[in-house]
Design a binder for these strands. Structure first.
Lengths: 332, 332
DNA sequence: TTGAAAGCGCTAACAA
DNA sequence: TTGTTAGCGCTTTCAA
């Protein structure tokens, strides 16, 4: 491996000067710089970031934890962050936490021991306490899709209760009164909050929430199917269903059709998240928009500010969801 | 920051012993190990991977380049690789090359200067020569979704000509003779090969390929829509259309419906890739399966073998696509 | 504008 | 089984 030392000898300068050329620090005389650049090219020098990081105590790398590396939701978020960080010449280390406490901790540890300059965390299993403690240490960090009172300044999340409310409110506005709900995983905050919003909307409309009309899934498409099957098997009557997310809505639509019901003629369906393919479905899916990509971008910008002192950039701590009316809902 | 030295002093041993405990190398007396572990816990020691990497010249990290961090296709691949590497206690550094020559090179450089032990490359713009040269250097690397004669042993790809052939063959088998084609980006090998297969199938069936029935898109959904619009605006007659990938097929279906044509009653549509949501569409999309996740896993296993000498693991160099018949195609 | 030299925190011979 | 010690390749004072 070619080292700075070899380059310096070839160029007839000190290794400190070579380092200066590489990092563009201090002023190096144009002539010396040329000399060094030539030597580097001739020798095929490649900078050793590991050694540089050790010496400078900076890695120029941001760690990102997401639940999974696949899926429209996380894809959009990663992509948003990556774009912002790349422009700032920072690198990103993406790992998957798999919504498991031990795994999430382990991945955060790995990121920290790799001395990431900052962390963007989309974790679901780790406790608030752990995150609060982590935040009190020296690593800048932002928590995405989660609101923690004690470190609210470093959190950014969507008002899911409100989103859940809006979804059901939309169905109510269309005249539906028998509204089923296919909840996301209820051990996740998102699932709980969205359902909570649903119930609130019903309540405000003077309708009593009927537990028989609520089924729990796990945010995956097939669980949406299963929810419909269970509801229908129980002969529940409903003209509309709100779902924990778009995937579940997709599954629900398929199950409804399989069982001979038309969407939206017989049953209106509303999703949540507005993932990429929501508008590819037929009819296009009515849903609640979750600006994931923007959140990914925002988190990255904020991190840039905190870790590297870039131009001020604020974090919108609680974003407001938006209703996107398309083709899967209609007036009764 | 707590260092090995501080831990060693606290435990009353040498730093070498602490290192041994951390890395589980050599045998350390159980009692000393306990002593060290306690000291580490008390001091809140966190291993510095950067320093370890510099000293050992290994990072236990694999670099992965994909065109984009979002999208079902890359998501599945990343996820497949991640799963395999995590089990082997290796880490993954994912970066996006954005199908741009300069960016791809730059990202590979970044990965190399971070001293990744190995690379998995899904690059689209970089030249074969560059990859061949890279492969001749000391970093183990596997090229995904691309076949390069000179380094075929390190490549894994799908036979896209064959897949394109199969798709159109399927339509022909159903009795279609007026078959349109919505090609993917033709500056990408995948786009060209799939189209080539299509033409071959027509030729073998004694049908002359009509350039008027071929439109080029860019693998995105909206380009599928545009292709249909252009074909229909030109009053082209066709009862079936094969598409460059599933996204384009999705767009095509939407455009056909918008213009009053039913799928598959009036026009049969076949996609390519079999991405996640292909089976969520209505009707479910007939397509060609591209086992992306498996490819991601396989690449990771092979890398594990090459870079760390894990149990032998071979790479399937050219995979065979598979036809998945669902609801968007029917006999004429 | 440049050079000398002391680390950064860890690993890995080699010795004991 | 454990300790000593010489680096790994780079950055960064401090001095010139």
């Amino acid at each position: 491996m070619v080292t700075i030392k070899q380059v310096s000898e070839r160029a007839g300068v000190s290794s400190a000067t070579v380092s200066r050329v590489i990092n563009n620090t201090d002023t190096v005389k144009e002539k010396t710089r040329k000399l060094v650049l030539n030597a580097m090219a001739e020798l095929g020098y490649r900078h050793n970031t590991i050694a540089a990081s050790l010496a400078s105590n900076k890695t120029n790398t941001i760690g990102l934890v997401v639940p999974e590396l696949h899926g429209s939701f996380f894809g959009a978020m990663m992509s948003g962050s990556e774009q912002v960080l790349r422009k700032a010449n920072k690198h990103m280390f993406v790992v998957a936490g798999h919504s498991d406490d031990a795994m999430e901790r382990q991945e955060i540890d790995a990121l920290l021991s790799r001395r990431c300059d900052a962390l963007i965390l989309h974790v679901e299993a780790i406790s608030n306490e752990y995150l609060i403690k982590l935040a009190s240490q020296n690593v800048p960090l932002v928590v995405v899709n989660r609101y923690i009172e004690e470190i609210s300044e470093q959190c950014t999340s969507l008002d899911n209760v409100r989103g859940g409310y809006m979804a059901t409110r939309h169905l109510l506005d269309l005249g539906h009164t028998h509204i089923a709900y296919a909840a996301g995983a209820l051990f996740k905050a998102d699932g709980v909050h969205r359902l909570q919003g649903h119930k609130q909307a019903l309540h405000d409309a003077g309708i009593e929430a009927d537990d028989q009309l609520i089924e729990e899934g796990d945010f995956q498409a097939h669980s949406g199917e299963a929810c419909i099957d269970r509801l229908l098997d129980r002969q529940q009557q409903f003209t509309a269903i709100a779902c924990g997310n778009d995937e579940m809505a997709t599954g629900a639509i398929n199950a409804l059709r399989r069982r001979g019901l038309r969407v939206p003629e017989d049953v209106s369906v509303i999703g949540y998240d507005n993932i990429d393919y929501a508008s590819y479905l037929t009819p296009k899916l009515t849903t609640i928009d979750y600006p994931v990509r923007e959140i990914g971008e925002m988190a990255a910008r904020w991190i840039l500010n905190q870790a590297y002192g870039d131009a001020r950039q604020s974090l919108t701590h609680i974003l407001t969801p938006e209703l996107i009316v398309r083709g899967t809902t209609r007036a009764i």
